[in-house]
Simulated scan of single mutants.
Amino acid sequence: MTPTTSEVDLSVADGIVVVDKPAGLTSHTVVARVRKLAGTRKVGHAGTLDPMATGVLVVGLNRATRLLGHLQLADKSYDATILLGATSSTDDAEGEITATATSEELAAITAEEISAAVDGFRGEISQVPSKVSAIKVDGKRAYERVRAGEEVALKARSVTISRYDVVDVRAGAAGLEVDISVDCSSGTYIRALARDLGAELGVGGHLTRLRRTRVGAFGMSTAHTLEELAEDFALLPIAEVAADTFPRFDADPDQAAAIRTGRPLPGLKLTPGEQTAMFDPSGTFLALYEPHGPLAKPTAVFVS
């Protein structure tokens, strides 16, 4: 995908910008910064990152905000550092340390034991999310209940860890530092992986660094810092994103007229079980359609 530049009128441009989020900012704050840079209020993001986390945050402008929910963003990649030897109230470095291991306990842990423990977290696993997650419990976010002093018990959920590599193990001032790289399904909590690895090894653990390197097809190669975007706003046009993400159908003028108004179309050979990006003869992205028996019907129309 080739980004456009700030020469485009961003207030009406439809597209995706991939932000390299800095530490210390919420995803909401990043959206506010992008909104100001682009001069439009129609900005949304996919896949929240915690303030301490950095890396890929996919942001949509104008009509592309509606496209975010249709993109294949379930698979994600992370680089992270786990500190073994200390348990945190939030499973990361922003919480209070609630327990620590002795130097003798840490000295007894080998790199081979860490690798063996990691093996047990690959594949489809049952994971209890962090108590300070955004999961709602009786209509209220779990982290809000924790901050209010309530006890929160979250149910385990099934997630898939397709890659969990130990990159480095080293002695740190506060414990053993373990660098990892992870490919996982949506809904996976890397903080929970850190917590559970520490529990498995009997010394406790929490996350001290988290960098998301990929969301779906969007990786660091297309990501830009807020400072870079302020100088040159690299926007991926909605048509290119749609063409690179979905099967493509180029409509004739009559079909395009029907698609613009969201009418079902007969006789189209679209890919079963998938959404197809519909384009008019000029190359304008019009809509996403799916096959329904003998008809193709819209799931979302992006033009009026």
Rank of each mutant, 00 (worst) to 15 (best):
E151G: 03
L268H: 01
K140G: 07
A142G: 03
L154R: 03
M278W: 02
P294G: 06
T222P: 01
G55I: 13
A251P: 00
E274L: 15
E240T: 13
D20P: 06
V58E: 06
A277H: 05
T100A: 08
E112S: 08
D9W: 05
R212P: 10
T299H: 08
D20N: 14
V43N: 02
T222W: 01
P22L: 13
A239H: 11
A107C: 01
P22A: 13
R170E: 13
S130R: 03
L288N: 04
V128Y: 07
L83D: 06
T100M: 09
T188D: 11
G267A: 14
R33P: 04
V169S: 04
A174L: 15
I97Y: 01
P51K: 10
I16S: 04
T222A: 15
T271W: 08
D168L: 15
A107D: 15
D9G: 01
K21S: 08
G219V: 03
V146W: 01
P237I: 07
L106T: 08
D14W: 05
T160G: 02
R260W: 00
G204S: 11
A80G: 03
F249C: 14
I180N: 06
K42G: 02
A46Q: 01
K131E: 12
R157W: 07
V203G: 08
R209G: 05
L207R: 04
T5L: 00
T160L: 09
S77G: 12
E290Q: 12
F246G: 06
V182K: 06
Q72N: 14
T65P: 04
H224P: 01
T110M: 10
V178K: 01
A192Q: 04
I114S: 01
Q275C: 11
D165P: 11
L265D: 03
A108M: 09
K297D: 05
G44S: 07
E104P: 04
I109L: 14
V301D: 00
